[in-house]
Write a protein that binds this DNA or RNA. Structure first.
Lengths: 229, 229
DNA sequence: TTGACAATTCAACAAGCGATGAATTTTAAT
DNA sequence: ATTAAAATTCATCGCTTGTTGAATTGTCAA
């Protein structure tokens, strides 16, 4: 007779009393968020992900279907929340400025500040999501699909506000400037650690307040220069 | 006896007179440049690459060693050329401004314009390389390694020029602004087609002149706002 | 003419990939 | 008590991955 070594995993549905076995769907999404942000879609295997989430590999498919669908789910999850917070920030700024039309700086701030808040929050997932957003935004494969799908409506609202704030601008100017803002923002929260090396440690990529406090006037001045001539 | 179907490939070293068989190393690098830029490091398999280059898969290893080393070679190839052109542009601007110190706009222009020229050149490879640069710059895996390795010296030179042009700025301001510029630039030549969709076709991501003509004043105004207060 | 070397193809390797069907266990409704 | 459904593990499928060794053919100097 052979010894039966202690089996650490049990087959079948776990007891609902069993702690550590709950919220496995969320655990998968969180791990996926982190890994996709760091290594990109093709850089993450389902087995690595399963391991990081402490879950059997088949469970990923059970919850989220094929890999592509999982990626879409991860990206979508916080997009809606972020959009909502940006819209609220814009609406608040509008009311604070009334009856005047809202100033460029305030629009930029409504766009950027929710990201700073997210990145500084206790929920580490938001930091990962911001890096994921940077990855998708810069990807020729995912960008045109996912960004358009989940963020185009928001863009329209903000472009509209900017059009009112900068009445002399033509639309091409506005869209290009928006594009620059999007790029600056992306690299900033891609959080690659590049600025740390570049500056010899003087600047730290996780110093979000330093990043955003300078970024808002930087971008606003750019808009004014190009769109308010 | 079985029929012998026409063999399309021949084993062994090809005749040197054989056209279509020369410069295979370069063909591999060019295809790699394009595919890595589009799909990222993990999104490209050596077989796909071999197929795109019209070459046997084993030949990639023969010329360039393992995959990582190939990636490094691809990235390095044009980095040196680009650095040289940027330095020349900066030197030209310096002499044109002498004896005054060189103005911010001119520095930004020396940094950005060589990229526009590259992207508009007949050599399609430059367009691919720019997209690759965007990928690496935004990647948390490759960015800190490759960007620092091949572009840090250049950064020092340009930061130095900016420090002279903006004597009131402290270094943290300069590095952060440089970072925003880098991000805006990256997304612009990542060439994802995003701005096309966003603007409903009004702006085209391959309209490099439109992109750079607005980008230079945009960035310069940002620098002035943050670093010249 | 021989022999070293360069350039190429081919076949194969072990490892890893995403996906799935079957088995197992628990829950919850009937 | 019975049964359908939910949640999980496991084993395995057919492919694909990066890499390498052996075979083949051409070049060029000695």
């Amino acid at each position: 007779m052979t010894m039966c070594p202690k089996k650490t995993t049990k087959v079948g549905r776990p007891r609902s009393s069993d702690k550590e076995t709950s919220e496995r769907g969320e655990r998968i999404l969180n791990a996926a968020e982190e890994l996709f942000a760091l290594h990109g879609y093709d850089g993450v295997t389902l087995r690595t992900l399963a391991n990081a989430a402490g879950v059997d590999v088949a469970l990923i498919n059970y919850y989220f279907g094929p890999k592509q669908q999982l990626f879409d789910t991860v990206f979508k999850r916080r997009a809606e929340i972020l959009n909502q917070e940006r819209l609220t920030a814009l609406e608040n700024a509008r009311q604070a400025s009334a009856p005047d039309v809202i100033a460029v700086e305030k629009i930029i701030e409504a766009f950027l500040r929710p990201l700073e808040v997210a990145q500084e929050s206790d929920d580490e997932g938001w930091r990962n999501y911001c890096a994921l957003l940077a990855y998708v935004n810069n990807s020729a494969v995912w960008g045109p699909v996912l960004m358009s799908k989940h963020y185009n409506d928001l863009v329209d609202v903000f472009i509209d506000a900017l059009r009112q704030a900068l009445p002399k601008a033509d639309d091409a100017d506005l869209y290009w400037c928006y594009h620059y803002m999007s790029g600056a923002m992306s690299l900033t929260f891609a959080n690659t650690g590049r600025i740390d090396k570049m500056s010899g440690g003087l600047c730290r990529s996780d110093d979000f307040q330093a990043a955003y406090d300078r970024m808002i006037p930087f971008i606003a001045a750019g808009f004014r220069q190009v769109c308010d001539r």
